[in-house]
Structure formats: structure tokens, C-alpha cells
Simulated scan of single mutants.
Amino acid sequence: MIAPGAIRNLRGPGQLLLQWPDGERTLSHARLRGACPCSQCRAARLAGSITVVPAEVRIERVEPQGYGVQLVFSDGHERGIYPWAYLRDLL
């Protein structure tokens, strides 16, 4: 999977802007937090736990990891690394 050419964290509106070869796409911070791919969050979703993510949650930092990005959220969660293909599937 090809990485996006640019990533911008739009904190005010709570959007992560990704510039892919076929165009720009945005994902809300709340959507990304709710779709966290870490093992703890994935296990909770598989067990049927529904966690409501507040619309106010924001991405504090975006840390490149080569095959994706680690997102650090304002609620303190920072375990998830989002592979590029996973981000594309969330669109």
C-alpha cells in the first residue's frame, strides 16, 4: 500500500486530512478513535462492547511508523498504529 503524499491534522474541525494519489480525503478524529486497531480496542469490539467516542476527542500527535501512523489522542489513548491500507478502508 502506498503512503499518502501528505497528512495534516486539522485540530479545530477535528479532521485528519490525507492526500492520496487519487485525491484528498478526511476522516474525523472521533471516527479514527472509535476504529482504533490496537489489540485492546479490537478485542472490545469483537466482544460487542460499544464505546461512544465523544465528538470533542482530538488527535494530539501523528507519529509516522513507516507502514502507517500512530495516533495519539486527547483522551490519552496512543496504542493504535493505523496501517495505510486500514486508513484507506475507513474512508
Rank of each mutant, 00 (worst) to 15 (best):
S39D: 10
L71Y: 00
P37M: 09
G14K: 00
S28A: 09
R31G: 08
L16W: 03
D22R: 10
R58M: 00
R61P: 01
L46V: 04
I2G: 05
D89T: 15
C41M: 03
C41D: 02
L46Q: 05
L27P: 01
R11D: 13
R88T: 15
L87F: 02
A55Y: 10
P4F: 03
V69M: 03
A30W: 05
A55V: 13
A6E: 14
A30N: 08
E56L: 07
G66Q: 05
A43D: 12
P13N: 15
H29S: 09
H29A: 07
L91A: 13
G34V: 06
G68H: 06
G76R: 14
L10M: 10
R45Y: 06
I81C: 04
G76Q: 14
P83F: 12
S74C: 08
P13V: 14
G48V: 00
H77Q: 04
A47L: 07
S74T: 15
Y86W: 14
D89H: 13
D22G: 12
G80R: 00
L27N: 02
G5H: 11
H29I: 06
G76M: 11
V53Y: 09
R33P: 00
L32Y: 03
Q65D: 10
L16I: 12
L46A: 02
C38N: 01
W84V: 03
N9K: 09
Y82M: 04
T51I: 06
G76W: 13
P37F: 00
L18G: 00
S39K: 08
Y86M: 05
A35Q: 15
S39W: 08
L91Y: 11
A35K: 02
R8M: 08
Q70G: 05
I50Q: 15
V69G: 00
A55T: 08
A44P: 03
I81H: 02
G5I: 13
G66F: 01
Y82A: 01
P13Q: 14
S49L: 06
I50H: 15
I2K: 06
G68C: 12
S39F: 14
C36N: 04
D22P: 10
I2Y: 04
C36V: 05
R31K: 15
T51P: 06
I81T: 09
